[in-house]
Amino acid sequence: MSYTQEYLNKCSGLIKRVSEQEKKIKQGAAWFAESIKKGRLVHVFGSGHSRIMVEEMWPRYGSFPGFNPIVELSLTFHNLVVGANGQRQAMFLENVPGFAAQILRNFDLSSLDSALVISSSGCNVVPIEIAEIFQSQGIKTVGIISKNHSEASASKRADGKKLSDFCDLVLDSGAPVGDAMIKISGLETPVSPGSTIGSSMIINSLKAETAALLTEAGFPPKVLTAGAVVGKEKASELFQAAYDEHGHRMAKLYEKNGIESYVSNPKPNNQK
C-alpha cells in the first residue's frame, strides 16, 4: 500500500470517529444557535495551529455571522519560524498564566454567549484558561481535542487540569497520540498529522447543524456564497450583509465593556 493510500485510510477512521459523536455535535450546535438567535455570539478560540479551525468556522465561503473568531497574533503568527515573531515565542506565550484573561478583557461577555475552544493536546495554559473564564461566566463551552493525545500528554498548567476539565461538552478529532499518522520506512518519527482533518470535519458539522436550527427557527443565516453559485450581484449582497451583521454583533461586545465611561453610559444633558 502506498503512503498516500495509508493516509487516506487513516482519514477514513477519523470520519468514523466524528460520525460516532453526532449526538454531541447536535448538542453543541443547539447551544450555538441559541446564542446567535439572541443576537449574541459564539466565541471561537484556538492558538498555534488551531488557528486554522477558528478561520474554518468564520469567515470563509459557506460560513455565516454569529461567530467571534479570536485569533491572537502573538500566539498564531509564526510563519517566520525563527527570529522576531517566531515559533519559539509563540509556544512560550501559549503557556503564560494570565494571558487568557488579558485577551478576554477586551470583550463584554454574557451568559447568553457560547464558545468553542480548540486545542489538540488540551494541555497548553492559554486555551485552558480561556475555557475556564468562559465557564466561570456561565458560557456554554465546547472543546475540540484529540482524546488519545490529550490523555497521553501532561498539562502545562500547575494544577494539572486540561481543557476538557473546563468544557461542558468535549469533541474528539480522532487523531492519534502525537497527531502524526504515518510511519515511514527508515524514518524514526511519524509524519502527516490528522487533527486538522478530524477537527475540520467537526467544525463544518457544527456549522451545518447550527445553520439548520437557525433556518428552522426563522433566522436563516446570511451565508458567504460564491458568485459561481448565486451570481455576482447576489454574492456581493450576501457578503456585505453578512459582514454588516457581524459588525452589529461585535459592537455589543465593546459598547459596555470594562470601566464605565460617559460614552458607555451617557446621561441626559442636565445631569453632571
Rank of each mutant, 00 (worst) to 15 (best):
M201Q: 11
S199T: 14
L206A: 06
A90E: 01
K232I: 02
I36Q: 10
Y254G: 02
F134R: 04
S111D: 15
A131V: 05
I52L: 15
K222V: 12
A208V: 10
V142R: 11
F134P: 11
V117I: 14
N270C: 03
Q271N: 04
S111F: 01
S136F: 02
E6P: 00
L109Q: 12
S114L: 08
V223H: 08
V126M: 09
F77I: 00
F92Y: 14
K234V: 12
L8E: 07
G86A: 05
R51N: 07
V142D: 02
V230N: 10
N265P: 00
K26Q: 15
S261H: 10
E6L: 10
F67V: 07
M91H: 09
C11G: 00
G138E: 04
M91V: 05
G66L: 05
E151K: 11
A84M: 06
E255K: 14
A217V: 03
A154G: 01
I118E: 07
I130C: 10
L104T: 08
E151L: 14
A101D: 14
G174A: 06
E188M: 07
S264Q: 07
L238R: 14
L224P: 12
N270P: 00
V54M: 12
G48I: 02
M250H: 07
T189E: 15
K267W: 07
Y243G: 00
L14H: 04
L163P: 13
I182H: 01
L224G: 03
K10Y: 15
I36C: 12
I128F: 05
R249E: 06
N124Q: 03
D172L: 03
G98E: 01
I25N: 08
